[in-house]
């Protein structure tokens, strides 16, 4: 796509951009459809159940049917809700999640935008979704939604700090925030991937990422046993679908980022296996991360709010800081990284 960026914006180029975006949207929606399907299948299998198996062969069309149902539902807005904000929130949640995908490189030349501060761009955009969730919680005029929204604000802001700092080590080793260069720096055998020298950073990143995604064990904003459905208690139909979509698009983004930052992106684990295209390796690693997220969801209970904050500020943040020092020492004395 790089040649497009270098040309002046014409109608033709704008059409190309739109077409590209629509392609990514198609891929993402396909992913979300089947991520939900596999999440339900895997969690079902882990609980002696079969998971969805009624709609289509093996239940493959279950999510399609669910989405169709959501789209056909009556669009309800609570009488005393703040109408403008209530309508705006789902869009505000989804747009940044989708825009954040622009910077993800799936292969050497398979990337939308090669941004020099790729990771920062992602963090900046994902922060916007927090606002959307607070807005949704506030605008619903529902106490559970409000509590969920406030929790989510506290949680996502707290965890963004260790999330960013845990990646500093990677950035230091690569000397760049450009995602493509980060992957290129991890070429070679699998022990060259960042997850080994950056093991602390990797763990901190994974935990904070789970919290960023609002997924178990950090699913407090929508903790159904306490807050009914959290910030989207009052949402139904396609507005609810947008929140759901945003959530899974972030799952997609975080799984991609984990692959890129720590698992070597499209690099094969052994250079001898390079005959298999890089995109296959990328997808395999990506799916492993997604599976891990589902697996954790099937196993763990939920943290409490105060413990959640404590974990972020008292455990993850110092660990991430420590990681920076270790990385600095590694670069200085052992010649890690480039």
């Amino acid at each position: 796509m790089q040649w497009l960026w270098d040309q002046p914006l014409s109608w033709m180029n704008a059409a190309w951009f739109t077409l590209g975006a629509l392609c990514v949207l198609g891929i993402v929606i396909f992913f979300v459809t089947y991520a939900i399907y596999f999440e339900r299948k895997i969690i079902g299998w882990m609980q002696f159940r079969k998971g969805p198996n009624r709609v289509g062969p093996f239940g493959l069309l279950q999510t399609v049917a669910d989405v169709a149902k959501l789209l056909l539902k009556e669009d309800t807005i609570p009488a005393k809700a703040d109408k403008a904000l209530f309508i705006m929130a789902p869009a505000l949640a989804f747009i940044p999640s989708f825009a954040a995908l622009a910077i993800i490189p799936y292969g050497m030349n398979l990337q939308f935008a090669d941004v020099n501060v790729g990771f920062l761009y992602y963090v900046a955009l994902s922060g916007v979704t927090t606002i959307a969730i607070v807005t949704a919680g506030w605008a619903s005029n529902n106490k559970y939604a409000l509590l969920g929204g406030m929790r989510s604000a506290a949680q996502m802001i707290s965890y963004e700090v260790p999330l960013v700092i845990s990646v500093v080590g990677v950035a230091m080793m690569t000397g760049s925030l450009n995602l493509r260069e980060i992957v290129l720096a991890q070429e070679g055998y699998f022990w060259n991937w960042n997850f080994l020298p950056q093991i602390i950073g990797f763990v901190v990143f994974l935990v904070s990422a789970l919290a960023e995604l609002n997924r178990t064990p950090f699913d407090l904003p929508e903790a159904e046993s306490e807050l009914v459905a959290g910030y989207h208690t009052e949402y139904s139909g396609f507005r609810f679908a947008f929140f759901m979509l945003a959530e899974y698009v972030y799952l997609y983004a975080i799984a991609c980022l984990t692959t890129i930052l720590f698992l070597g992106g499209w690099n094969p684990p052994l250079p001898q296996l390079a005959f298999i295209p890089g995109i296959v390796w990328f997808i395999l690693k990506f799916l492993a991360v997604v599976f891990f997220v589902f697996w954790v969801r099937a196993t763990f209970p939920r943290l409490r709010v105060d413990q959640l904050m404590g974990l972020a500020w008292k455990a993850l943040l110092p660990l991430a800081m420590l990681n920076i020092f270790i990385t600095a020492a590694g670069i200085h004395w052992f010649g890690w990284g480039g």
Binding site: I42, G44, W45, M46, Q47, F48, R49, K50
Partner: peptide
């Protein structure tokens, strides 16, 4: 449990 017999 992922691989065990399902009880549905």
């Amino acid at each position: 449990t992922l691989g065990t017999r399902k009880s549905t």
